[in-house]
Simulated assay, not measured.
Amino acid sequence: MSALRIVVSTFGVLLGLAGIEHGVGEILQGSVRPAGPVIESWPDAAALEILGGEPALTVIPDLLVTGIAAVLVAVAVLVWSVWFAGRRHGGLVLILLSVLLLLVGGGFGPPLIGIVIGVAATRIGVPPRRGPGRVARAAGRAWPWLLGIAVLGYLSLLPGTVLLDLMLGVDDPGLVLGLSVLSFAGLVLALGAATAAESPGPAHRQSAGRREPGLG
């Protein structure tokens, strides 16, 4: 797989698992009508108080049905991002699935990530109009490291903040915000670097532009 597809697939798995986790919390609340469209996936879980009970949005007036829908759509997002994101219209389908995940209780962060990687997936296999500059080429060589930082930031947010709260009593909203920014910024940088990594360098473009002797 290309660098860009690896980044898309990696975060597709993470957001899919996060959507499933939201759905499980909603299923456990049973067949009850939410007070409004904005809900908490885990309102009674003390361990998740640091994350505000994991807020989500639903257009379905039943938490049990919401949770089931969230799990199903999250699984679809995971499968699609890993196996089909690189196909024609694969990125568009991923964006639509992410919007659907938002509407059926999959949280706010996971669908946002899905939209971002869906937009990036529309560029998989698309040749750039021009090659990357020197800085972009250097970033392209570092895309695995940037992806690692992004994943670390995401895992530090969940389950990292939950574990810190349980084991050390660290309950700091500022930490949650900082890790959220780190994860999102890392994802954007990883996607940009992966895109640059797939762009041909100057030497490749020059050789591609030469005509082979005897071919017309």
Rank of each mutant, 00 (worst) to 15 (best):
A203K: 13
V82C: 14
V71L: 08
R5V: 08
F84A: 15
R211H: 11
I95L: 14
G114P: 10
L97M: 13
P37F: 09
L28A: 15
L4I: 06
G192Q: 11
T66C: 02
L92Y: 10
G36I: 02
L155H: 04
L4T: 07
G118S: 10
R130P: 03
G140M: 12
P55G: 04
E21D: 13
V32D: 04
V162F: 12
G36A: 06
P173I: 01
G30Y: 06
V65H: 08
S207Q: 15
A185S: 14
S9A: 15
G169C: 06
V151E: 05
A76K: 09
A18R: 00
L92W: 15
G125V: 02
R205G: 03
A208W: 02
I68L: 15
L175D: 03
A56L: 00
L103G: 03
P110T: 03
F11Q: 11
P200E: 06
G201P: 08
I27W: 09
E54P: 01
P111T: 10
D62Q: 10
V104P: 01
L17E: 08
V71M: 08
G30M: 11
A70R: 01
V93G: 06
L14I: 03
L14V: 05
S31A: 15
L182F: 02
V7I: 11
G86Y: 04
R210M: 15
G174F: 01
A193P: 03
E40D: 08
A45E: 09
A69M: 14
R129H: 05
G125S: 09
R205A: 09
A46H: 06
G86M: 10
L14Q: 03
G160H: 05
G192V: 09
L15S: 09
R88P: 00
G90Q: 07
S207K: 14
L158C: 03
G106F: 01
I6L: 12
L101P: 02
L152K: 00
I39D: 00
A85P: 14
V32I: 15
A85M: 13
I124D: 07
F84M: 12
R210F: 10
I50E: 04
F108Q: 02
P111L: 08
L112P: 00
R130L: 11
A197V: 10
V8E: 06
G19Q: 01
G109V: 12
A18Q: 05
Y154H: 13
R87D: 10
M1K: 11
G201V: 08
H89Q: 12
G12M: 14
G109D: 08
V7H: 09
I95E: 11
D165T: 08
S81W: 07
I60K: 03
R33V: 13
R141E: 15
G106Q: 00
S199Q: 07
G133W: 11
V126Q: 01
G106L: 00
R123L: 06
S180I: 01
S183N: 03
G23M: 04
L152W: 02
P55H: 00
V176E: 07
P200Q: 13
L4H: 03
I27C: 07
G12C: 14
P213E: 14
A56S: 05
H89P: 00
G209K: 12
G214P: 02
P159D: 14
A35G: 15
S9Q: 15
G12F: 14
G186H: 04
Q206R: 15
G109N: 05
D171W: 04
V135Q: 12
L182H: 02
G148D: 07
P61C: 12
A139M: 14
L179Y: 06
